[in-house]
Write a protein that binds this DNA or RNA. Structure first.
Length: 573
RNA sequence: GCCCACGUAGCUCAGUCGGAUAGAGCGACUCUCUCCUAAAGAGUAGGCCGCAGGUUCGAUUCCUGCCGUGGGCACCA
């Protein structure tokens, strides 16, 4: 619709008299948007206001000129008018609405999908939690955001791959293994000496200072004791404990994600970057390019040559380099991350989307610098950063830390409020704002809880359809959709017809909250107004059939929208 | 100190590329179930869009400075 209108506006522009030399009407961008105020019509363009300066003419005069030469398709446009300072408002013809409604019914479960990015592929990396403990609330926001962004991209045509980057290498994994080992020793040798650490916690003597204190560590150790007896006591290092912990914890993570409705297509193990030599290749190539060097036993990335600076104590500014490989021989996160992103880009995706928490924001530019320095197209990398989640219970924030085992797990959260509510709450705000997750509100199955508002509207339509079926009414094609002329009916159709654009806008802006807490609520509200004003069961058969079709279209839109968000659309509540 | 994000109604937040009278939910106050699900609907009250400049026909939106909040500034990830 918009492109048809824009084209005809450009044609009208070209016919205006006294156009300045060099003015190309065909190149003018004509944007249409849905006015906030319904009395301003169904679509409006501000093109006349924007052309005021280049054409050196009053905006209203330009608008009048456009309208005078404008010939939009009369089957779709009922009226055009100039309003306010120079807006041009367009009102749809009712035939356009009936046609649109038929399209919704025809598209069914695919309604809302577009092929905008049909020839493109996207890799979405999310969750990527270290397998050192159960998923927590913070991982939950990451998982739900990533999963939903992947859905949104898929609905706009991308071929989407969902990937979990599995951090199964590095120091944290060693600490994890040592934590399990200490618990194991205590499990098979009850007389193992103990010590007290920060917070008055009593642990085995060999427990690392920064070890993982969760009860799951003890469980894994006990399982090892049950399975192997004391045979692992003289293991040369912590490797078997690390492996056991990793496998047990990852199985838990997978189960939690499945429960949350989050699925992954691929798992990429950080270890393979070491096994294949990819990380060392990065170091070698950077050195060849003169962008890496040795100093104090460590390998440094010469980011100072790539624009990275820091401010000195004296207030001056100087270049800053960062460490790639510590003097201990162990790489920092940057090195495998650069290698991993090179790998992702090398797989030919048109878009590589990363989802990560605000604490990683400072690290991402170094990775981009590394990728660019080695000749890959970093422009394909896009990052969605989300702010932290604060759980609020009884008006008080709940403090969390994985290592100190003082946290609420994602499973506990789902136990308490259900997966649908968890997903919705993580999606209802812009990723860029801090999220207060109000447990008391989430638990409340009432009108205060926004997710129920959407699900209830869907269940209500399903109920109407059941009732209609009992009375022999069918919504199959053939209804005369031109009968839908009530203001509430037209308003509902117009709202429904925006769905594909809303999905696309949410995808482009990487902003699932637009769907969750704005558009779908508008759909439910528009349906509720229709429900109030227009009965179905008991009306004349023609009208009842047409209204039943409209209700079906509303249900389709709600169901598809909830599907994008990964939230169930119940038929009964 | 420096970097990033945020600051909009009592509370939690939307606000699309700079557009028309700045919106919603919750909370407060009125109303509406003989009727397809009242988990709903109609209405009222509530605003220095943090402050001050600048750009513009037009600024909540863009730029600069200041104030406030959160996060980040390691040979941690």
């Amino acid at each position: 619709m918009e492109s048809h209108l824009a084209e005809s506006v450009r044609a009208a522009l070209a016919q205006l008299p006294d156009l300045p030399d060099g003015f190309d009407a065909g190149a003018v961008e004509v944007e249409f948007q849905t006015p906030n105020d319904a009395s301003h019509g169904d679509l409006a363009t501000n093109v006349a206001l924007q052309l005021a300066r280049p054409l050196k003419r009053a905006p209203r005069q330009i608008a009048e000129g456009i309208v005078a030469h404008w010939t939009p398709d009369p089957a779709r446009v009922e009226a055009v008018e100039v309003a306010g300072p120079g807006f041009i408002n367009v009102r749809f013809a009712s035939a356009h609405l009936a046609e649109g409604l038929a399209q919704i019914l025809d598209a069914g479960a695919d309604w809302g999908r577009t092929d905008t990015h049909a020839d493109e592929t996207a890799l979405v990396e999310y969750v990527s939690a270290n397998p050192t403990g159960p998923l927590t609330v913070g991982h939950g926001r990451n998982a739900v955001l990533g999963d939903t962004l992947a859905n949104l991209l898929a609905w706009t045509g991308y071929g989407v791959t969902r990937e979990y980057y599995f951090n199964d290498a590095g120091r944290q994994m060693r600490v994890l293994g040592e934590s399990v080992r200490a618990r194991y020793q205590a499990a098979v040798r009850p007389d193992t000496p103990t010590k007290e650490i920060e917070g008055g916690v009593v642990v085995p003597e060999s427990f690392p200072e920064d070890g993982y204190r969760g009860a799951y560590i003890t469980d894994i150790a006990r399982a090892l004791a049950d399975g192997h007896g004391d045979a692992l006591l003289d293991a040369p290092d912590e490797a078997p404990f690390t492996a056991a912990a990793r496998d047990a914890i990852f199985a838990e993570i997978e189960a939690t994600l499945a429960r949350l409705g989050v699925r992954m297509d691929e798992q990429f193990n950080e270890r393979t970057l070491y096994e294949s030599g990819a990380v060392w290749e990065v170091v070698d190539r950077l050195k060849e390019a003169g962008l890496a060097y040795e100093r104090d036993g460590a390998t440094w990335f010469k980011t100072s040559a790539l624009g990275k600076t820091e401010v000195t104590r004296e207030g001056g500014e100087e270049g800053k380099d960062v460490v790639l490989v510590k003097s201990s021989g162990e790489p920092t996160y940057r090195l495998p991350d650069i290698a991993y992103h090179l790998d992702k880009l090398g797989r030919g995706f048109s878009l590589v989307l990363d989802v990560f928490g605000a604490d990683h924001i400072a690290t991402y530019p170094d990775v981009v610098r590394g990728v660019e320095a080695l000749g890959a197209d970093a422009g394909k990398i896009d990052v969605v950063v989300y702010q932290f989640v604060t759980l609020v219970r009884g008006g008080e924030p709940v403090k969390m830390s994985t290592r100190k085992a003082n946290y609420v797990t994602l499973d506990e959260l789902m136990d308490e409020v259900g997966a649908d509510v968890v997903r919705f709450f993580f999606l209802m705000r812009s990723p860029n704002t801090h999220l207060d997750f109000d447990l008391d509100l989430a638990k409340e199955a009432s009108d205060k809880n926004p997710v129920f508002y959407l699900q209830y509207a869907h269940a209500r339509i399903a109920s109407i359809e059941r009732k209609a079926e009992e009375t022999g009414l069918v919504a199959e094609g053939g209804a005369d959709l031109g009968l839908l002329t009530h203001a509430s009916e037209e308003a509902l159709v117009k709202t429904l017809l925006q769905f594909p654009d809303e999905v696309r806008a949410a995808a482009e802006a990487r902003a699932p909250h637009r769907l969750a807490s704005v558009y779908l609520r508008d759909v439910a509200t528009a349906f509720n107004a229709f429900y109030r004003d227009c009965r179905i069961v008991g009306e004349a058969p023609d009208l009842a059939a047409a209204r039943l079709s409209l209700a079906r279209a509303a249900r389709t839109t709600l169901a598809n929208g909830l599907a994008v968000l990964g939230i169930s659309a119940p038929d009964r509540m």
